[in-house]
Design a protein around this nucleic acid. Sequence first.
DNA 1: AATGAATGAGAATTCATTCAT
DNA 2: GATGAATGAATTCTCATTCAT
Lengths: 214, 214, 214, 214
Amino acid sequence: MNDLVEPSSDEAPLSRREQQKEEKNKALIDAALAVFSRVGFAAAKMDDVAREAGVSKGTVYLYFDSKEQLFEEMVKANMAPLMTEIAENLARPSISATERLKAHMKFFYTKILNTNRRQIMRLIMAEGPNFPHLAEFYHSNVLSRGQAVIKAIIQQGIDSGEFRDLQGHGLVQNIVAGALVAGIWKLVFDPFQPLDLDAYFDTHVDLILNGLKA
Amino acid sequence: MNDLVEPSSDEAPLSRREQQKEEKNKALIDAALAVFSRVGFAAAKMDDVAREAGVSKGTVYLYFDSKEQLFEEMVKANMAPLMTEIAENLARPSISATERLKAHMKFFYTKILNTNRRQIMRLIMAEGPNFPHLAEFYHSNVLSRGQAVIKAIIQQGIDSGEFRDLQGHGLVQNIVAGALVAGIWKLVFDPFQPLDLDAYFDTHVDLILNGLKA
Amino acid sequence: MNDLVEPSSDEAPLSRREQQKEEKNKALIDAALAVFSRVGFAAAKMDDVAREAGVSKGTVYLYFDSKEQLFEEMVKANMAPLMTEIAENLARPSISATERLKAHMKFFYTKILNTNRRQIMRLIMAEGPNFPHLAEFYHSNVLSRGQAVIKAIIQQGIDSGEFRDLQGHGLVQNIVAGALVAGIWKLVFDPFQPLDLDAYFDTHVDLILNGLKA
Amino acid sequence: MNDLVEPSSDEAPLSRREQQKEEKNKALIDAALAVFSRVGFAAAKMDDVAREAGVSKGTVYLYFDSKEQLFEEMVKANMAPLMTEIAENLARPSISATERLKAHMKFFYTKILNTNRRQIMRLIMAEGPNFPHLAEFYHSNVLSRGQAVIKAIIQQGIDSGEFRDLQGHGLVQNIVAGALVAGIWKLVFDPFQPLDLDAYFDTHVDLILNGLKA
DNA sequence: AATGAATGAGAATTCATTCAT
DNA sequence: GATGAATGAATTCTCATTCAT
């Protein structure tokens, strides 16, 4: 949504002041992602976020009301651009379902697993129960949309005869599962047993497409 | 005297005192699981663990040196019984690879996902980066063993002609992924979109077995 | 602007903020001296230091990293001015060795024993073994310098024929000993047997000068 | 006083039980001296005292009511034997005052400075202000008696013409001071500037006797 | 008598948040 | 707006003392 607004909107162009504010906001969001990723919500210090953003402790509170709010805004800000891209994936030109599924999964690996957005994925899992509000936001804005895309692709595949009609409860989660696990693995177990994301991706797609094949 | 109390056990007989210590240790481990599950490591209060175990604050420190140690011991204590069971799964009577894989996955759903051990799974993912020691323990004691079992089953299936020889990097992780995601989902998103573990299990097995089929 | 406030000082002008910090630092050092003197290091409560300095508990930690550091800094801060004065005593105009020794001892009684620096003397003796770092600092910055002065005076006296050449191991310590004991006595036994420092000083000087006399 | 009772008193000889109690009491006193010397009163742990005495924590409380009491009893127990010896020094065969003073000082160096009783000396200085009760005990039982002996010797010396009649306030403290300082030095500064007690003793005696000489 | 498990008051230290400058 | 000094509630951990066994 934000992307659409940017270029030639009818809002007043941002003044110097507002621009600087925008930049500082961005810096704080980035710093927050870095710090929360490193140590989790509870152990993160506002002071560290401030330092990492190059501002003073007090300044953080000019932009965010509290640590909780900073955390939520950080997650949302990092999710927003994703959401529009997912939406675009829903309305795709008519290639085969198989190709669309591959492309969507590629998107997942490229835009999330291979960036530090995977940290957010982990944070959601780690802190979700303490931030039901946030879990719900994530579910309805990211997961639901992602599910919709995949469901549409599967239906297209069934209709075209590419996929069998599996009809299972939780099919979508099962399809994506491999990707989530890859993300977690990279963050937690990679030092002990490294994972090559590209090769892993191939296995994932191979297994799932074969599993779905009519 | 004590020997008479525990007639049918050839283990070292525990005195009354030692028995009570054992019980209290167990109570603390259980309390720790409950509290850490609820709020994560950093936000957990030793005081709450104590209260939940029905002892005083100071007592916790008679059993565990620090919050860190309590956390690690709690994880290990909850993993230990699992590890032996996994080992048994490795040496199974000669049924088909398909049946063995189903059985092993059933085991996973029954012994982990459906118990509060899934909380531990989540804690490992959430706190792993802050407890490399623990992540390594978990990897080498639980994950490695689980991987070995599945690899053996797959090989059996390839040998018997049941499975194709997929040879993919991260195949095992992809096979189990659905289960992990189910566990996380129950803990984080169930309130917003409930998951029926039994039905989900069927989908998971169906998709994977079909994906592996020769 | 700040420069105008401190016109007659060529030191780096302190801003209001910095001035206040300086003052608070001083207040904390003073409070620390008072509290540590009263109950010793281990029994001293940071809370009491804070209250005595008129700040909150947390503030103490803005100025000092730990109780240990506060203790050490307090000792050093109280010693610093002394050290320069001792140095000046070394380079004295040419009066007789006898007069110089008297003067130096007077200095000792006036600047240490009769102020609450004697508390520090006692703290060094009491806590020294637990703070080797500090004991060493005290030894090399205060004791060594003091010893040097006295040695120089004695040599002058020997050269001038005022003193005999005693050549004893630990002569300096023996010369000063009476003063140290006076300090301790005032702090520990004065309630039971009061000590008049002035009269005591006379005895001390009399005994030592006679003992050194050629 | 206790000494007089010991040998042929009319009390029943100690039973096995009482003997063992006596031994344990002794062990605890010794352990207390060791621990308090090491870390001072506040930082000393009853647990350490118990362990060092080879008994359990609870047992300490069968012998002493509290940490305070243990500390006081430990000091008293270590002082008691000294007190009788000092008393004997008072009633000495008729040798010259000079020789008596030397002998008394030798006694001081041998029985206190060269044993771990010097630790007690330091503890009195360190903790005295927090234990006025103890400081008073030490003053009236040890210091007063020691002072009496020295005063008697000095008077003898004046009468015999060996010493001049200095008449100074605090003369006794000044005479003994060198010894106290030696004790402290060994405990606090020896690592940085070692002190040879024997040579130091000679200097001390030389300086003082010369100072007193008629 | 002896033990050592349990208690809980107490102390050091941290850090989100506020607010004077 | 920005700063960073100050606050004080909160939390971990310690240890003298008690008491059931």
